[in-house]
């Protein structure tokens, strides 16, 4: 059957990684279809990794035009107006990504990510969205969950030197090799909405402060009707006020959401390129795991902060789903 065996060309190109994850995983990768939305630094890093890995296809969504900010952590677009004028971010990134690996089909989907219907998502195995509002995240997550097949859903965001990845693999079964035996493992993921509405007092002890701070910023942007990242130091008083309200409403100790952290997150919203590389790398690895069905996947949040250098996994899910 076509595509059952790797070609000689694929074997030569992917030699080093086949030695890591095996021929079988490589075959699955070559049949996987990925959708990404929001072509900023972190997503660009992710796209590079996944195109190099040899997925079947990658579809880009981002109809924004090039701005100086969009260029700052993006190595796919030459800073030359003659090249980028009149094209969208997705189109420009597509041109460069095609070059990285001729065996991957890279294309652009025009339009607004939140307007696509359920059939649209049916074409994909993995959906990664970035730089979009709280409402859009929830909406797309729900659409992916309604499709009959299982779509692996991810969000990724980088603010200043901090970053967050969210993962929803729904009901996920995977194999885990222990010495000579292979164990079947199962995980149950909450939806994005389920996860972020878990009362803060019910969260794991010592949950990273970054999780809480990101939720405050998300709610603030939502309440103010801002685009993601459309926030500045002038908004700090409003953000602190919202934090107080959220904590009080949940009888949650305010000191778990430090003002200094919120201040950092609002004062510089541009992406820090080393953090983009780190998040894009971790996300790439996770998507490869989810496609190949091999290895423990991340459940269900990952955080990185360059200030302390920790890359932390948090499991934010209701211990008794449905109760």
């Amino acid at each position: 059957m076509d595509g059952e065996e790797l070609t000689e060309q694929e074997t030569a190109l992917y030699d080093r990684q086949i030695r890591v994850w095996g021929v079988d995983a490589q075959r699955r990768l070559s049949k996987a279809h990925i959708l990404v939305s929001g072509m900023k630094g972190t997503v660009v890093e992710f796209c590079k990794n996944i195109v190099l890995a040899g997925v079947g296809s990658l579809t880009l969504v981002d109809s924004r035009e090039v701005t100086e900010e969009a260029l700052s952590a993006n190595f796919l677009i030459p800073p030359d107006e003659n090249v980028y004028s009149g094209k969208t971010l997705a189109e420009l990134c597509c041109d460069s990504l095609k070059d990285f690996n001729p065996m991957v089909r890279v294309s652009v989907e025009k339009g607004d990510i939140s307007s696509f219907g359920g059939d649209f998502y049916d074409r994909f195995d993995v959906v990664v969205i970035s730089s979009c509002s709280f409402a859009t995240k929830k909406l797309i997550n729900e659409k992916c969950r309604k499709v009959s097949k299982r779509i692996a859903f991810y969000t990724v965001d980088c603010r200043d030197s901090c970053g967050e990845i969210y993962v929803d693999l729904q009901n996920y079964t995977y194999s885990k090799k222990k010495l000579d035996e292979t164990d079947e493992c199962q995980l149950q993921y909450p939806s994005f909405e389920e996860a972020v509405t878990i009362p803060w007092r019910a969260l794991p002890k010592k949950v990273t402060k970054l999780y809480l701070a990101m939720r405050v910023i998300e709610r603030f942007e939502e309440a103010e009707g801002r685009n993601p990242g459309e926030i500045s130091i002038a908004d700090l008083p409003g953000v602190l006020k919202l934090k107080k309200e959220l904590c009080e409403a949940q009888s949650f100790n305010e000191s778990h959401v430090p003002d200094a952290l919120l201040e950092r997150l609002v004062s510089d919203t541009s992406e820090f390129p080393p953090v983009c590389a780190i998040l894009g790398g971790i996300l790439g690895q996770e998507v490869i795991k989810a496609i190949s069905g091999k290895g423990d996947p991340l459940k269900n949040f990952f955080f990185f902060d360059a200030i302390d250098g920790k890359g932390i996994i948090e499991d934010i899910s209701n211990p008794n789903p449905g109760s």
Partner: peptide, 17 residues
């Protein structure tokens, strides 16, 4: 031959910087 994947290298490069 050493095992090598792009993602780990990207993460490590970020940490180096």
């Amino acid at each position: 031959i050493v095992h090598a994947v792009a993602t780990t290298n990207a993460v490590i490069a970020g940490l180096i910087v």
